[in-house]
Computed example of a mutant assay.
Amino acid sequence: MDSSVYVFVEDLRGEGVERVLDRISAYGVRGVTIGAVHHAARDITPHGLSKLTIRRDGAHFPPPPDLFSGRRLKPTAGHQDALDGLREACTRRGLTLHGWTVFLRNATIGAAHPDVTVRDCFGDRGSPSDLCPAHPDVREYAVALARAVARLGVDSVVAESLHFRPLKPERSFVPLGPMDTYLFGLCFCDYCMRRATDLGVDAAVAREECARIVGGVLDGDTPAQGEVTRAALTAYAGPDVVAYARARSETVTTLVSEVASAVAAEGSKLVFIDSTGGVKGYRDGLPSPGLAAHDAWQLGVDLVALGDLVPAFGVLAYARDAARVADDVGAYLRSVGKDREVRAVLRPGHPDSDSADRLVAKARGAKAAGAMAVDFYAYGLVPHPVLDRIPATLAEAL
């Protein structure tokens, strides 16, 4: 069974490529998933040179001029030499190398080009970090970025944020319910509206309904409670809004198809990560009841359609319960097809795994449900004693 450890370039810069890879090799995993393109973050890094690491938006390699010359959107420059020699160092140890790529989450690009970011039902730009997958310039950027990472000689391009993202306000003293938050997070930019209209959706009515409902709650109306389901959303917001939400899947599916084809043309393959599992369980490892595969539509992800286009999928199995991990993996496989490679991404420590036994149980559950690989997230974010659970997990569970 395949396996890898997610690694940030700051880990390599702080500890050195050889030291990090020697430690990872000793865990018995088969590969490294390196953060070739990442978003800005502020992370506690327990064994890094800095215990608080400030990450900036960046592509950690020189962008090929033939891919980005003349394009409006270009990768934000990161640590351009961070990956030098990494491919060769992995080969010497028999490790595969995967290029973890964050596509449409980039506040630097969004701040420089606000028109390529999502726009809510009130006409406001929701967040500079959320690039809209319907915008033509964003789509060209994503395809070129995928080609650039594939050219690094990676065995796969691991795609994160290649879909719409949910609304995540830093502060809200208004008790928005889950459905209100979802409606507030829908993008109504010109390109999203046009694509929905082309599919027969009355996009203007959908926007008006979202503005009416969310505006009412902001003015003091009682927010709706309960899980976001298509049936509940239809009853709450009406069929035009649900049809608009469904239309987003065409935007994502066609973009992912273009990216997968571009990666394949460069001799690599795409591993698509749907962030729904992270949305549900990131904070505490206690995801809401609906399985991630069943709720992926909320981000515009049509797993059934992508199953015909993408060879491999990463499942963010951010849950404390081994049975939930197995259920999530099984639901993905039923959606994308039993012949597709599904990789379960596990967090080996807090908040998901309070012991080595729990991590082993979750890895066993993922394997029993049909996962072909288990990946561990992430090297620089957890203490060494937690990382030391990986060898026993691989030996006992896989």
Rank of each mutant, 00 (worst) to 15 (best):
H60L: 12
D11F: 13
A196Y: 02
V301E: 07
A237R: 06
D180S: 00
V382K: 01
G238D: 11
R283L: 14
V259L: 06
V5R: 11
A326R: 07
G200E: 09
D57S: 12
V259Y: 01
K269F: 11
A397H: 05
A262I: 11
V242P: 10
L49H: 11
S288F: 01
P178F: 06
A319P: 07
V382E: 01
S257F: 05
T254A: 15
T222Y: 14
D388V: 06
A392K: 12
D57V: 08
H47M: 10
A265N: 14
L270G: 03
Y318C: 03
S25D: 07
G267W: 13
P65R: 14
A196F: 03
G349S: 08
I273Y: 00
H294K: 08
L218F: 11
A144E: 13
L333N: 00
V345S: 00
D221S: 15
Y141C: 08
A77T: 05
V17L: 15
R246M: 12
G94Q: 13
P65D: 12
L306A: 10
A142H: 04
K74H: 10
R364M: 11
A204N: 04
T251S: 15
P46A: 09
R195N: 03
K362F: 08
A235M: 04
D221W: 05
P136A: 04
D190E: 14
A361T: 01
D221K: 14
A41F: 02
A232K: 15
A224P: 00
R147Y: 09
C187N: 12
F184W: 07
A77Q: 06
W100A: 02
L152H: 07
R147C: 09
T229R: 09
T108W: 01
G226S: 10
L12I: 13
L67V: 08
R207T: 03
A196S: 03
E266M: 15
I44F: 11
L162Q: 08
V228N: 04
G349K: 02
L21S: 07
K168C: 04
K280A: 12
T33H: 03
H79Q: 15
P289V: 14
R30Y: 15
A211E: 14
G58H: 15
L398D: 04
V263S: 07
R324A: 05
G215N: 00
L52S: 10
L306N: 01
H135G: 03
K74Y: 12
H163Q: 15
Y236S: 11
G126M: 14
R171C: 05
Y379M: 10
Y332T: 00
D221H: 15
R171L: 11
D81H: 12
A159Y: 14
V329F: 01
I273Q: 02
A204E: 06
E250W: 15
